[in-house]
Simulated assay, not measured.
Amino acid sequence: MTTSGSPGSLEAPGAPKAAGAPGPAAAVPGPEGSTGTPGSTAPLLSAAGLHITFPGRHGAAPARAVDGVDLDIRPGEIVALVGESGCGKTTLARSLLGLVPPTAGRVTFGGAPLDYATAALKAYRKRVQLVLQDPTGSLNPRHTVYDAVAEGLRIHGSTGRFADEGAAVADALARAGLRPPERFFLRYPHELSGGQRQRVVIAGALVLEPELIVADEPVASLDASVRGEILALLLKLRDELGLAALVVTHDLGLAWNIADRVAVMYLGRIVETGPVEQVLTAPRHPYTQALLSVLPEADGEEVVLTGEPPDPSRIPSGCRFHARCQVLASGAAERAGVAEACRTQDPSVLDGSGASQVACHWALARSEG
Rank of each mutant, 00 (worst) to 15 (best):
G228L: 10
I258G: 05
K236D: 15
E297V: 01
T281G: 09
L252H: 07
V200F: 07
V294E: 07
L243F: 02
L291N: 14
I230G: 00
V200M: 11
G228N: 10
L233Y: 08
R199A: 08
A203H: 08
S293C: 02
V294P: 02
D239G: 10
V276I: 12
V276Y: 00
L243G: 09
E209A: 15
A282V: 03
E217W: 01
I230V: 15
V276P: 00
V214L: 11
P283S: 07
D216A: 13
L241H: 12
F185Q: 01
A298F: 08
D239S: 15
G195Q: 04
L212Q: 06
E229K: 11
P275L: 05
E217A: 15
A220G: 12
E240V: 04
V264F: 12
R284C: 01
N257A: 02
P210Q: 12
I213W: 06
L267G: 08
V294I: 12
A290K: 01
V247T: 10
L280A: 06
M265V: 10
R227V: 00
L208R: 13
A298R: 13
G253D: 14
L267W: 13
V200Y: 10
L246H: 06
S193Y: 04
L292C: 12
I258L: 07
E272H: 05
H285V: 02
L222Y: 00
G195Y: 01
A244C: 09
G204A: 14
L234Q: 07
R284W: 04
I258F: 04
S225E: 01
A215K: 14
E240L: 06
A245T: 05
D216S: 11
L280K: 07
P296V: 06
R197M: 03
M265E: 08
V248R: 12
S193W: 03
R199C: 09
E211N: 13
R269V: 00
T281M: 06
L254F: 00
E229P: 03
T288P: 14
E272V: 03
F184C: 06
G253A: 07
A263W: 01
P286L: 14
L280G: 11
V219H: 12
H285N: 11
V219Q: 12
V271D: 15
A259S: 15
A282W: 00
